[in-house]
Design a protein around this nucleic acid. Sequence first.
DNA 1: GTAGGGTTAG
Length: 633
Amino acid sequence: MSYSMLAVVGSFTYPSTSAPNPKLCNATLRRKEFISLLKNCKDANQILPIHAKIIRTGHDQDPFVLFQLLCLSSTLSSVNYASTIFQQVRNPNVFLYTALIDGFVLVGSYSDGIRLYYQMIDRFIVPDKYVITSVLKACEYRFALREGKEVHCQALKLGLCSNRSITMKLMEFYGKCGEFDNARKVFDKLTERDVVASTIMINCFLDHGLVKQAVQVFDRVRVKDTVCWTAMIDGLIRNGEMNMALELFREMQKDNVKPNEVTVVCVLSACSQLGALELGRWVHSYIGKHHRIELNHFVGGALINMYSRCGDIDEAERVFAMMKERNVITYNLMISGLAMHGKSIEAVDIFRGMIKQGILPTSVTFVAVLNACNHGGLVDLGFEMFHSMSKDYGIPPQIEHYGCIVDLLGRVGRLKEAYNFIQNMEIAPDHVMLVALLSACKIHGNLELGEQVARILINHGGVDSGTYVLLSNVYASSGKWKEAAQIRAKMKEGGILKEPGCSSIEVNNEIHEFLLGELRHPQKGKIYKKLEELNQILKAGHTPATDVVLHDIEDWEKEQALAIHSERLAICYGLISTKPGTTIRVVKNLRVCDDCHSMIKLLAMITGRKIVVRDRKRFHHFENGKCSCGDYW
DNA sequence: GTAGGGTTAG
């Protein structure tokens, strides 16, 4: 036993809470007993006493015992501890190398894993299939193409390339590095191109947006299992192909393949992005009926997210209350959900409850809490939270947190303070923050500061279409048509296209999409009729806020252009296709304009309907002529 | 005598 080894043990405090294991008192513990002790160990606190005993009984160079010790300490405790143990081993074999490389991969120290592999090669230790797959994993995550190719060559020389695990990892490695030809070559060489290999190949393509190629491989799989279907559905969702993903989910069931926990989490994610509440509810009831899918962190979190983002915040809260175990992500999702819906006090209460439970917040938690303060105009509390994050939790504020404060001050009209806050920040402002301030300037009618911010924004470069539109609108709203036109010209010059407004509504399990000024719906006639009818009723009590459109055209023309904002079409379709009294839920890709906002308030009053609109930033609950955002968004 | 195929929420 070496002194340095004792130093390693000595650097860890003996946990007073864990009772001494009586087995350890037996001085004649043998290797097998050590191994089974290590294998059954579930608590990091138990590693240290076991390790101490291993050293005392002279088993500290036993490769079999060391292997278990390395595996355990890198998964339960820390890879640094495992690494220090490894350094004390006089002749580490391939097993020990594999265990430590795995440990490095687990914590994301991929380069260390690769370096360790090369050290092993330098010591003339012959790699086996296990260490090859481990180092390939490290190469894959590190995008270390050159090293991975070298490992591939070594595997070929050693005759290991017929091994299935290696070929699978090779495909994953080449796929992640974007070398589809190489991935494909490995795939094509397989004698058995089964569902597992195909799933990996499908993932390779979907990781890089190659949907067509993925579908081709998917279609050729004869017997698709749950994982294969799920990988395909998840990949489509990651590539923005929501409807295709949901279609596949239906097909999967027709094919009698049972969704598992992962499948429902993926499908719920699609629902939340689309605002497909009905389907989301169906998935929820499916989970309720099929007890093999439990309401764990993943499923619970996905449900909370889905209900929040589909506009049913009450149901999100019910799911949250039902969950037996919640982690920090569960809390983060619930807090952001409540914030999105303007339920600021409730969000802060959840945050406080989380702290009481002893769950440590992350930087994401603070973004959510600060957002909640924003939507409720809780300035003092917002500042309190902002200061608390670094003071009490050691989390340094990032650009998003600074942005929340700017938003917070902007909302209540403290524009100068917001501007000073930006100037005194330790980091450079990003364009999200400047846009937030510009938007506040527009809402509070401070054109002077608005122009100042606009100049900074333009000089900043990298401005997107939304910002240009906002800039142009700031000018247009004060009648400065020339400046507005200049912005539009700049937009054209830079080849920046205005992102087309798009709203969707779910009716009878189907998502109906409406684009700005374009109606290609089978019920087109009826929708226009409803639109006209409502326009007539509204005319009496509502003068359109025509300053929000880009063009300096005649008023009546402006009215026409406004009349067909996509959310209006979606709402009209909702009105004609659902029973009276049904809540109408619309999802929009951009932010709602002033005019539509005030029009929907009236519409909700006249029709006696609740109208819920999710825009790019938050939720608007329209009821009885009022909106939950308090007219600030 | 040491050890895995693919899918998971902010």
